[in-house]
Design a protein around this nucleic acid. Sequence first.
DNA 1: TCGTTGTCCGTACGGGTGTCCGGGTATTCC
DNA 2: GGAATACCCGGACACCCGTACGGACAACGA
Lengths: 130, 130
Amino acid sequence: MRNDRPQPHQHPVDAERVARARERLPSRDDAAAVAGVLTLISDPTRSRVLYALDVAEELCVGDLALALEVNEDAVGYALRVLRTAGLVANRREGRVVYYRLAPDFPEPLLDHCLWRLVALTRSPAADDAP
Amino acid sequence: MRNDRPQPHQHPVDAERVARARERLPSRDDAAAVAGVLTLISDPTRSRVLYALDVAEELCVGDLALALEVNEDAVGYALRVLRTAGLVANRREGRVVYYRLAPDFPEPLLDHCLWRLVALTRSPAADDAP
DNA sequence: TCGTTGTCCGTACGGGTGTCCGGGTATTCC
DNA sequence: GGAATACCCGGACACCCGTACGGACAACGA
């Protein structure tokens, strides 16, 4: 951190509002944790993997790539990230590896942040929807 | 797209599940739109700006930096991004610029994706709050 | 009028992220 | 056993994103 620049705005313009915000504001750590979770699903491939697993219950990597119509490498990378974060679980049967949502997957994340948002971005915000 | 590699997995292992996933899956464009919105709030500074504006109703840039205890540049950049996306609105009074959530701000985004998530990540099953 | 304050803008830089590509491993069929 | 399949891994590359910094502008107070 540099101190060359003087601390700006020494006197709050509205001290009361600042105090209220400060007191009810999530800490930087909490915000970082939330941001981390959101970053995980802020990717078309990863979110669609979660959508697909939510719909199909269980899929292997190849079928997942087929369903999403994307490269298998992309699916592999997305699954690695999601698996590292503990959001998906895998089961091996012979030479095929099946993936599903983790048993303790936070459902609010899927319901509120994905399914609801896809409906939200489609219609009300005056988006050009065919 | 390259075709050097042979198309893997020509025959689905479980055609029915693939078909079901394919049919109920958001399109790549929809997923990209959702990812875009989520990316906007997948940043500690930006999300805390939204939290603060939700709590305090209206704040100027300097007070915002004071409340979040971050550099003023960071707040400025966050506000620029949020403003470009149309998530916040500003009002100029003299030389002070006040920011607030945009009139048509999608409340589900804030309620479901931010406030609820911060409670979720803090303690898996505890709600202490608003 | 002149200096100061609050905010915006453009640019350059460091770091993180996704994709491409090679090779590697385990399992099944002949 | 040997070949083929389905998947995993790790490095290399380009790209985007957030930050820092300097300058610019408008608005107040003297």
